[in-house]
Design a protein around this nucleic acid. Structure first.
Lengths: 226, 226
DNA sequence: TCCATTGTTTGGTGATGCTCGAACCATACC
DNA sequence: GGTATGGTTCGAGCATCACCAAACAATGGA
């Protein structure tokens, strides 16, 4: 009965609607200020402040102070993973908060998951890189092969800059819509960032949708065709 | 702000200590009755009853009526996966409910995860079967190779009986202690069951610990050495 | 048919905790 | 300095919900 970690503690933390809204908003990947998050959650600043300190206390958030602003982001990819897993359960149970519509379809196609690409295009990229031997799965670990390193450089990614970071280069992340893996980690972040630089796609403000241009979609299909 | 599934609903469901205890107890894999679960949660039968109906309502449980008993089990492997992921976060955040002790070490070494083997020995088995080409990973999917089929038969598993079931044969499951994959699905269940039949190991009543005999541990190491 | 066991429902109690307005610090900009 | 903005703390109000005891329904066995 009292085996294992204290699950209820953090589940209760996520279980409040206001806090869940904040966490969902942070899945966009960008760090947000307290006022922005209060808007996302639909509560006033004071209440948001209490919620945020609780989330921080619980270890779910990373906080940075910058001048008179306070920026909040998810503490780790692991937190994002749990949120995605919960979304999978909620979606599967049929308790979608919003009716499925064109917006939902767009989310399924391509969206931002924390800081990397998810949805059908995210899993397509993952599968392609795996099939071509750019990535190698070893249990739950993921690594970039020599071939993958070359590919990344050609794609315009500065791998040296990435390796200095604390976060692992490659990580698996499970999709709530496609129920498959996609690429997370600092490389996943860099790949999406590069696609923005190449003008393949742009973010639709206020949503998690990644909108590919027709030309961008064509290039993507060519680059990651299996 | 209102993208995606309703995460707070089920997180709140897991977020109550009594309910979390029940769910954790069900990670043992066996179906339990309402009275048993009330004992696990440390509440009276009436309160347990309302909790259980809520969990059922939320789609987290599978309920079967048998005579005057009501048996509860987790609704799916997916639910078990979310619980494990939450345990990973809680453990990582350092909010272990129990101080680490010999019991905790035993849990880390070998334990039951829903219905299959987890912990260090679980991941060791998974890695060995992957390295020998018994299992093949394809994205998030897992399949049994021809070589693996032969191995399973030699090990004494009736694969024909397993294929009739609804649950997939092979599935990955992430460990909260080892942070690596281990083998779930009906094959994972059958493997653990077979080890019990071979008297390699036995369950310690009332816990999730799987206790290997010295001889059983030797056989295990031989069978799954890399 | 009667009794014992299992589970559900109801009513009442208590506590937890979410919420906001207002007052209070801190920083930045003029 | 003075002023505006971002954030925190305090107080009170309010709703939700977990909890149990007791009564009730259902099933199985004697």
């Amino acid at each position: 009965m009292k085996d294992g970690p204290d699950i209820a503690r953090i589940a209760a933390l996520i279980g409040d609607p206001a806090r869940a809204n904040m966490l969902t908003a942070l899945m966009h990947g960008k760090a947000l200020t307290a006022t922005e998050l209060s808007g996302e959650a639909g509560v006033t600043l004071p209440t948001a402040s209490v919620h945020l300190s609780k989330l921080d206390e619980g270890g779910l958030l990373r906080v940075r102070k910058q001048g008179r602003h306070k920026y909040f982001s998810l503490a780790s990819d692991e937190v994002a993973g749990v949120l995605e897993a919960l979304m999978g359960l909620a979606a599967g149970a049929g308790h979608l908060r919003t009716r499925t519509g064109p917006r939902d379809a767009a989310l399924r196609k391509a969206r931002v998951c924390y800081n990397h690409l998810a949805g059908e295009m995210g899993t397509a990229m993952y599968d392609a890189m795996l099939a071509r031997g750019h990535l190698r799965e070893d249990g739950d670990d993921l690594s970039l092969t020599a071939k993958g390193t070359e590919f990344a450089r050609e794609f315009g990614i500065d791998l040296d800059a990435l390796e200095t970071k604390r976060t692992p280069l490659c990580r698996q992340c499970l999709d709530w819509s496609a129920r498959r893996n996609h690429l997370a980690g600092s490389l996943g972040r860099a790949m999406l960032s590069r696609m923005h630089d190449l003008a393949w796609a742009r973010r639709i403000e206020g949503t998690r949708i990644v909108d590919f241009t027709p030309e961008g979609a064509r290039q993507f299909a060519t680059t990651f065709r299996t």
